[in-house]
Amino acid sequence: MSESLKIAVKNLNVFYGKKQALFDINLNIFSNEVTSLIGPSGCGKSTLIKCFNRMNDLVEICKYDGEVLIDGKNINDTSTDPVSLRTRVGMVFQKPNPFPKSVYDNIAYGPKLHGMYKNKDDLDEIVVSSLQKAGLFNEVKDRLFEPGTGLSGGQQQRLCIARALAVNPEIILMDEPCSALDPIATAKIEELIEELKEKYTIVIVTHSMQQAARVSNRTAYMHMGELVETGLTKNIFSNPEHAKTQDYITGRIG
């Protein structure tokens, strides 16, 4: 396991209007690892990962203090361009949300937007390799110009992962990426996560304890806006330090 720090969260407080959503969060996320965020609904998991690519900028009433450092640089500095930040920090959501475009155009959209290719061949190459990396190419190679929304749920989710990969990110955030998928599609995504961590840093929010246990190197448990405990996944699920964590993972609190 590498131990190189990718994201450092320092004393982060987040407010939506008067309501405080996150309380003094300190968390380290390491390169080429999968980190799971677990905790009951409303505990702040999604709020936290949205801080990693400044998705909360879009929420007017959202205010924060504290720092989120990626590779040692505070992403909330005025010098950080949120759009280029979001190419470095890709995101996959709970419900697959392909654009109402062809499979090809779904993947090509980001590279086109950011001018990340030289010519048509180059763009083709990006589309094919992104689909390959997402383990989807063989299933859609004859349907590249059919609508992405016509794929199955699991395929759509891998299409969204391919779309995130097309702009060459360093970090991939996944917000319950398998909650709408059947066990086979889920297994394919989990296998993909395992492969992707070789090149990317992955943060996954999940409500499935088993999924967190299966896919992640480290797990962070959150409760009511606080980070209760973080550690190696095998320790969190076999012998957590905090009673609250144990109560949650063993199904004793909701």
Binding site: A243, Q246, D247, T250, G251, R252, I253, G254
Partner: peptide, 13 residues
């Protein structure tokens, strides 16, 4: 670790 409370799903207990 303090004394455990019961599971939400009582048949687990």
């Amino acid at each position: 670790m303090s004394e455990q409370s019961g599971h939400i799903v009582s048949s687990f207990d």
